[in-house]
């Protein structure tokens, strides 16, 4: 694959009078593991929403897997979105469904409505769901009710759903902010391993800088909607990170 997975050219996003991202240009190539870092409100979530096609830019050009999402029909946009899996901080699972249904939700882009209904009564694709759960380390939870699981386990279910969806790229929006430090390391390591093993691109927004260093190869620093740096992880100095989070004098 020679085309970049994502390509942003001078992208600006405004919510009313507030500018969330201004003139951001970047590319993400296949197989990269990219960390988005920066303080709250820097534009990390906005950037990820652009990347999964759920938000259109106010100005500039976005290309997802070589396509401009603003020019696609709803149907064609969905086809692109199916290639982009997202893991969220709050998991976004249905709490009162069994784990297997939440995992099978990864198939929904390919299933007809009738098949989707049938599967809610008699679960289909049990093998692939079981395999995905085994891959994320909770094989025994296939028929458990999702809200009986711990936070870390629910995040694993969300990752299993993305595995079943089998996208080209995985986006993760602060995937470890809702789990304890011990689980954080496990989840990050799991994401890295799965991306290596299944050859997927990873873009993850993080508050915990140490995982950006240890689990990603490239770091993009955002502050107030601007890209402050975009470097291989090895070249990001503690001073640069500190500058990213420092409270500006004018603001203080």
């Amino acid at each position: 694959m020679t085309d970049p997975i994502f390509e942003l050219h001078k992208v600006t996003v405004r919510y009313g009078s507030f500018t969330a991202l201004s003139e951001v240009s970047l590319q993400v190539k296949a197989g990269e593991r990219v960390a988005l870092i920066g303080p709250s409100g820097a534009g990390k979530s906005t950037l990820l929403s652009l990347l999964n096609g759920s938000l259109a830019p106010s100005e500039g050009q976005v290309r997802l897997l070589g396509e401009d999402p603003t020019r696609l029909s709803v149907r064609a946009l969905r086809r692109i979105q199916r290639q982009i899996g997202t893991v969220y901080q709050q998991f976004h699972l249905v709490p009162n469904l069994s784990v297997i249904h939440n995992v099978n939700a990864g198939h929904l882009g390919r299933w007809s409505l009738a098949r989707a209904m049938l599967s809610l009564i008699v679960p289909l694709e049990r093998q692939s769901a079981a395999r995905a759960l085994a891959d994320v380390g909770i094989a025994d939870k296939l028929y458990a009710r999702t809200d009986t699981l711990s936070g870390g386990q629910q995040q694993r279910v969300a990752i299993a759903r993305v595995l079943v969806q089998d996208p080209v790229v995985i986006l993760a929006d602060e995937p470890i902010s809702s789990v304890d430090p011990e689980r954080s390391r496990e989840i990050m390591t799991l994401l890295r391993e799965l991306c290596d093993r299944f050859n997927k691109t990873l873009v993850v927004s993080l508050h915990a800088i140490e995982y950006a260093y240890s689990h990603c190869e490239r770091m993009i620093g955002l502050r107030a909607g601007h890209v402050m740096f975009d470097l291989p992880a090895g070249q990001v100095t503690p001073g640069m990170v500190e500058a990213l989070y420092r409270i500006r004098k004018a603001e203080a």
Partner: peptide, 14 residues
């Protein structure tokens, strides 16, 4: 689900 490209009907169902 919608952001993952799932059609509206199936997304509402799940």
């Amino acid at each position: 689900l919608l952001n993952g490209g799932v059609p509206a009907g199936q997304a509402l169902l799940y």
